[in-house]
Design a protein around this nucleic acid. Sequence first.
DNA 1: GGTAGTACGGACATTCTTGTCAGCATGAAG
DNA 2: CTTCATGCTGACAAGAATGTCCGTACTACC
Lengths: 121, 121
Amino acid sequence: MRLPVQRAIEVCPVEVAVSVLGGTWKLTLVKHLLGGTRRFGELCRLVPLANTRTLTRQLRELEEDGILVRTVYPQVPPKVEYALSPLGESLAPLVDGMDAWGAAFASRLGDGGGTRRAGRT
Amino acid sequence: MRLPVQRAIEVCPVEVAVSVLGGTWKLTLVKHLLGGTRRFGELCRLVPLANTRTLTRQLRELEEDGILVRTVYPQVPPKVEYALSPLGESLAPLVDGMDAWGAAFASRLGDGGGTRRAGRT
DNA sequence: GGTAGTACGGACATTCTTGTCAGCATGAAG
DNA sequence: CTTCATGCTGACAAGAATGTCCGTACTACC
């Protein structure tokens, strides 16, 4: 288990989820994998703004945390497939919820809170 | 709107949610505020591992993104209250879901995926 | 005078993460 | 021979975020 996850377990469950899913592009990767098994090159094309070094790192962390399964085929050219584990699949409602929330947030640009004064400062 | 949020809007809705909620302790702060209005010192005590500089920064960002409302009372000693906006309240199911998921993850330590070989490497 | 309470913000140091670049391995095709 | 495809990894640079420290403001109390 990775150190940030170990540390988060001492804090609270929300921080555990954050430590597992908080890396750059991780939720986007999970979202794409919810659609089915993908190869590395496919994921790179699905997330064009990410550099491959970062994608590799994040996929390895997701694998280490048990979110996905990485299958290496003994062939040339190399063939590697990534698929969500059952634990990874359990993230579907969360990813859907964040997708919907993000879409709603983006569509209401400029609405919402701000500082309200109870009197003069 | 903060630049990371602007950038995420060009990418996809999941990345929007990540950019708004991805900062250190942000989800934990939202979780505590779901329980009702809090003052700064209360939040510091509820998140003991965080330093106050970071908490201030994150609260300001959440305010800027419309997730919370900061109410300043014109008195000495200073009195400032933080409460979720309606937009912030809309995060309740997500925070609950992550809390539940993180708790389940922590309780199944060591279970889940890994690399499965289709043959020799 | 000093200390306490409250809620910060500026400045800089430190830490961590991402980004860039170069390289590896192998068979197939030209 | 070279080029292509695939999926990386090591090393270092660059960027971003957090952490530390000091200071502000004011009243009340010792």
